[in-house]
Amino acid sequence: MSILALRSWLLAEVPGSKSQARCQRLFIGWLAFRRNPVAVIGLLIIVSLILIAALAPWITANDALELDLGQRLQPPGSEHWLGTDELGRDILDRIIWGSRITLYIVGLVSIIVVPIGLFIGIVAGYLGGWVDTVLMRLTDIFLAFPRLILAMALVAALGPGLENAVLAIALTTWSPFARIARAEALTIRNSDFILAARMQGVSTAGILTRHVAPLCMSSVIVRLTLDMAGIILTAAGLGFLGLGAQPPTPEWGAMISLGRQYLIDQWWVPTMPGIAILIVSLGFNLLGDGLRDVFDPKSGG
């Protein structure tokens, strides 16, 4: 199929099948998204991050753990673009391998947080009454703790390590999602299409999953991308405090932590991973802003 034919298929006035209708919605969403250059930059950053993580074994010389004490603390130059650290490891290589860990954290946290937050939020919002009260008090408890401190307490109890850090972050992150999902569910539950579904005899579970959840999904996704920066920073913070990924894992926060004693004389050692964190957080934020515009119900997408 030529590009033109594909385009006209995607923009056809009359979709001929369910999948075409779906693709059309995505495509029109993409057309709207593309109009926002800042959001596209965000998307490019995230896509490059994923590509870099996927291609790490091919674009780096070694596995980022190999020591070369003869090359300790080399400044950025033609041989080591971003310099080397105190054990002579190439910082660029370590950042590239570290992107896998960042993605791992981000992915795992989203997989845990979105279903929990969405479930609690829509159940509370749709059912209301005492269910709402109980679930929302629970949410408030989690919301009331400062995220990093709660995560630290959890990791201290569970023992340091990447998995425990992820678990701690997830447990401290779901509550705002529940709040958002609940707020959406509250406005949705009074709409006529929910009454129509009840009239049809659709069960409560069916209404929650097929009618309420898809509508809450978009604000949750937007919030998730906007929150990603916070998640990455918390992960880095835990790494920095020695509570997250353990050396020699090239986790960005841990890299800053180990490199901070060289800040004065070999500034690049802690600064380079810091810049990586900054760029990726920024990317997620820009993407989130763009998605918010696309998902705006008024745009009809």
Binding site: D192, F193, L195, A196, L215
Partner: peptide
Amino acid sequence: MVFQDPYGSLHPRHT
């Protein structure tokens, strides 16, 4: 039942 508001009674994300 058929509802009054044709804009509110169909789920916006369903074909």
